[in-house]
């Protein structure tokens, strides 16, 4: 890739926080780095992956509203976690976390356990208790 070919297709993926260095060759054939704000091909693929995540979150949300899954399942998806990661954060066995994803088990959980989840998800305990889905 030549220096002047380094793409600058901004889709706000970097939120203006920095430019990503790309290696490219200059007029004299020497390698150098050029900061890039983005590349269309990459933007499309990243956007597609995030759309997929959003769809998964929306699906779980509907299943929480219908009373099958618990708010923990919703916040787990929203925080891009799976049972393995979530169990590691709250310090519980995976099979227990799996159970807590169902509304019928969630309703029986005490504040102590719920507080662990709330802390992991960075939300107030009351939000979790009131089953608010933000």
């Amino acid at each position: 890739m030549k220096k002047n070919e380094v793409p600058q297709d901004d889709a706000n993926m970097l939120e203006g926080k920095f430019k990503e260095p790309c290696y490219a060759i200059d007029e004299n054939g020497k390698y150098t780095t050029v900061g890039s704000v983005g590349w269309e091909a990459k933007n499309i693929i990243m956007q597609d992956a995030w759309d997929e995540v959003d769809q998964r979150i929306e699906k779980v949300k509907q299943q929480v509203i219908s009373g099958y899954f618990s708010p923990i399942a919703y916040y787990m998806e929203k925080n891009l976690m799976d049972v393995k990661i979530l169990a590691a954060y709250v310090g519980l066995w995976r099979f227990k976390v799996k159970r807590h994803l169902k509304m019928k088990h969630f309703d029986k959980l005490n504040d102590e356990i719920l507080a662990k989840y709330a802390e992991t998800f960075d939300i107030e305990l009351t939000i979790l208790k009131n089953k608010e889905l933000n």
């Binding site: 890739m1 790309c22 290696y23 490219a24 390698y31 091909a41 990459k42 693929i45 597609d48």
Partner: peptide, 29 residues
């Protein structure tokens, strides 16, 4: 999705472009 994931590892995670190939070319130079 599977195909997209290959490109994400190739371009997204600080490779300097083309799955480190350009960085390696710079090294060889």
């Amino acid at each position: 999705q599977y195909l997209g994931q290959i490109v994400r590892s190739q371009e997204e995670i600080g490779t300097g472009g083309a799955g480190f190939r350009f960085m390696f070319a710079a090294f060889l130079q």
